[in-house]
Structures are given as C-alpha cells and as structure tokens.
C-alpha cells in the first residue's frame, strides 16, 4: 500500500495532464491541477524547512565533523524566519500608521531587508565575483591545445573573448564596412547564431526525447526511482 498508493496518484495525475492537453473540454481540470501544484510546492517548502532543521539539529547533537557550520545554518534559518514572519522593524504603511503589520515584509528599514541588503547581497555577489579569479587560474593551468578538439575549443574561445569585447571592434573595425561578417564581432555572431544554435537544438531535442521516454516510464510504473532508492 505504501508503494502502490503514491504510484497510483502519480500515474492518475500524469494521465489527466496528458489527456487534458489534447482535450479543450478538460482545460479547467488542467488549470486546477496546476493550482494544486503551487499549493503542494508551498507545502514542500515547509517540509524542506523542517528537513533542514532536523538534519542540522541531529548533526549538532551528535557533534559530527563540521557541527559548528550547522549551528551557523540553524541560527541563520531561525533568525531569518523570525524577522520575516513577524515583520520585525518593518514600518507600517503610510495609510495605516497605527497598524504595525501593514508594511511589506521586505520593506526598507525592516530587519529582513537589512539582512538581505547587508548580508545576502554582499555574500552572494562576492561568491560570484570570486569565479573570475578561479577561471583565470584554470585558463592558465588547464586550457591546453592537447588535441584537435581542444584546439578547436581554444580557437573558438579566442574568437568569442575578443569578439564579445571592444578588442574585436578595435582590431577588425577598419574593414567592417566591406566585410562585416569577417570581423571578430561578426564571426562571434556567426558562431553563436549557427554553430551554437545547431548544437543547442540537437541537445534540446535529445533532452526532450529523454524526458518523454522517462515520463512514459513513470506513467507506466516502470521507473519508480522517484519513490526513493528502496523502491527503485
């Protein structure tokens, strides 16, 4: 029962969505199912939160390696949840100055806004910016013309790096009027518009066929990996 029931739910939901796609009369059913998805997604968020709490609390209580990081995670989670849910520091809306909770939860001046502006913003921006340093190091150490494929990749990288910056215009701009497609920006556009597009389309079609095959396996109950490893 524990296995069969979820299987039936998944199969029925899947079949309804497939059939509704082809039958306009069932359009409303499809729209309702999409609304259920949103409700389920919201509930899944709560379950996800509970799961994070449980996992990190266990790690702290067992004093496993790196439990200090779990304490930071738990503190961050609980404090953010608290200041967000209770709108700590949020100024009320000008129309209702006496009602403390009327302001937007992320209104300027609130604790949640403050944590976003001065913690999340700089941390995420810094993490992303660090990529430039590691990419530069990798370019020096790993980007080698070892074989034909690597040489092609290297040549393309050269063209794109030059063509997507002002260097491309500077180096080849002088003959842009006569041979626009042979300038570095022109060649870059051709690589992106022809070779890249062709490759991306092939990948997309492959993925789409793969998704169709996997979906069919799930609908027919052949693939049960989504129920957990023990049911696969």
């Amino acid at each position: 029962m524990k296995r069969t029931f979820p299987l039936i739910i998944a199969a029925v939901a899947g079949y309804v969505m497939v059939v509704a796609y082809f039958m306009p009369a069932l359009q409303q059913v499809r729209e309702d199912a999409e609304e259920w998805f949103n409700i389920l997604a919201a509930i899944a968020m709560i379950l996800g939160g509970a799961s994070i709490l449980g996992m990190h609390l266990r790690k702290v209580s067992d004093r496993r390696a790196g439990w200090g990081f779990s304490v930071v995670t738990l503190l961050g989670f609980i404090v953010t949840l608290y200041v967000g849910l209770f709108k700590i520091g949020v100024p009320p809306m000008p129309e209702y100055p006496d009602r403390a909770w009327t302001g937007e939860y992320i209104a300027q001046g609130g604790a949640l806004w403050w944590s976003f502006e001065y913690i999340i913003y700089p941390i995420t921006a810094t993490m992303f910016a660090l990529l430039a340093f590691y990419v530069a190091s990798a370019a020096f150490r790993a980007f080698r013309a070892k074989n034909l494929e690597a040489m092609l990749l290297l040549g393309t990288a050269f063209l794109i790096l030059l063509g997507r910056s002002y260097a491309g215009t500077l180096l080849t701009g002088w003959y842009a009027e006569d041979y626009p497609n042979l300038t570095l920006p022109g060649l870059t556009d051709m690589i992106m518009g022809v070779f890249n597009t062709a490759g991306q389309r092939a990948v997309m079609i492959g993925i789409a066929l793969g998704i169709a095959a996997t979906s069919l396996k799930i609908l027919l109950g052949i693939d049960r990996s989504y129920l957990g490893s023990r049911n696969a």
């Binding site: 430039a132 990419v135 530069a136 020096f140 013309a145 070892k146 050269f158 030059l162 910056s165 002002y166």
Partner: peptide, 20 residues
C-alpha cells in the same frame, strides 16, 4: 573591466600553452 579581464584571460591561455 570586461575588456581587460578578457585580454588577461587570453594572455594566460597563450602563456599556459607556451609552457605546455
């Protein structure tokens, strides 16, 4: 900044391959 970062990347790739 994008231009100079791109040029540095190119220089590093060339230098890396030269050593290789």
């Amino acid at each position: 900044p994008q231009l100079s970062a791109h040029l540095l990347m190119l220089a590093l790739i060339v230098l890396g391959n030269l050593i290789f």
